[in-house]
């Protein structure tokens, strides 16, 4: 077995006798478990928020990158000339990857929901549409408009998805805030466990004195405390995580609302993410208690 894993297992299994050298504390133990559970519960939500806004940002970002359209309304005779002019302009516009006039069938398909299948498209003065595919950071919309106004007065650039751009930024920001929230929760957990462990160490000053008298080394004394708090954090966080995941699972799905708000839950393998919360909580508790114990023991030398 991997020596680190063996060490962790040994730590978790513990040594009954060694555990008993520090008197049990019923009430504060339960408080620590409760606090760890609450923090884990909150972390599940912060995680879900982070992942969901991440998905949102990605999807909106993709749609943004995809396309905008240019609509040309011109008298019958000028239509083809203006189309050519617009295509000419687009070819020389930086940031435009591809441009393609929509075929009659495609235009038909677009209008069908409103006008039904029997629309006599060729007899109606319908504007022509050109789909513009961007690349990189996209093109300069104002510059393109100015050029179109000069070359093809009947052309109108419609970058209809652009209005979402601030939303994509907001979603990205929200994802970062989710991460920050998780970090803060971890920090608060560390602080809380440090305080609890310090209080326990102070309350057990007499016990520590006796242990020292009979030849206990710092690491031994610290371990008696560290193991307790690590296990409490692990158990509490496991309970909190499971409850948090259940709460998320029963969240009403928002996907039906046209995918504008993607469901604020976990999707697919993202459900595995919350499983790292309990070990992380245990790790935070381990570090916090160990630090508190060793520094307290040093102070009281």
């Amino acid at each position: 077995m991997n020596p680190i894993v063996a060490k962790i297992l040994h730590f978790i299994a513990g040594d009954d006798q060694a555990d008993r050298v520090v008197p049990p504390t019923g009430f504060t133990a339960r408080l620590t478990v409760f606090a760890a559970a609450s923090m884990a519960f909150l972390t599940v939500f912060a995680m879900a928020l982070s992942l969901a806004t991440g998905r949102l940002a990605d999807r909106w970002g993709d749609e943004l990158a995809q396309s905008s359209t240019i609509r040309i309304s011109a008298p019958e005779g000028q239509m083809d000339a203006q189309m050519l002019a617009v295509m000419e302009v687009l070819v020389t516009t930086p940031g435009v990857k591809d441009a393609r006039p929509l075929s009659d069938e495609e235009q038909h398909a677009l209008l069908e929901p409103w006008f039904g299948p029997d629309l006599p498209l060729d007899t109606l003065p319908i504007p022509r549409l050109i789909e513009v595919i961007e690349e990189g950071d996209g093109y300069d919309a104002a510059g393109l408009r100015a050029r179109l106004a000069g070359e093809a007065p009947g052309a109108v650039l419609d970058d209809h998805t652009r209005w979402r751009e601030p939303l994509v930024h907001a979603a990205g920001r929200l994802r970062s805030l989710g991460f920050v929230a998780i970090l803060l929760i971890a920090a608060i957990t560390g602080v809380m466990i440090t305080l609890a462990a310090s209080a326990a160490l102070s309350a057990n000053a007499q016990v520590i004195r006796v242990l020292r008298l009979v030849g206990a080394q710092d690491a031994y004394i610290a371990r008696a405390f560290v193991r307790r708090y690590t296990l409490r954090a692990l158990i509490g966080a496991a309970v909190g995580t499971v409850l948090g995941m259940i709460a998320i699972a029963f969240l009403p799905t928002a996907d039906v609302a046209g995918g504008f708000l993607t469901g604020l839950g976990f999707q697919g393998w993202h459900w595995l993410w919350p499983l790292i919360i309990p070990p992380l909580a245990a790790l935070v508790a381990f570090a916090a208690t160990r630090n508190a114990a060793l520094s307290t023991l040093k102070e009281r030398s």
Partner: peptide, 25 residues
Amino acid sequence: TRDDVALVRRRVGVVHQDCQFLDHL
């Protein structure tokens, strides 16, 4: 160091004037 002293305590048995024990054991 403190840990060295702890090791010394395993070679020196001390009966203290105020005998201190762990009362919960």
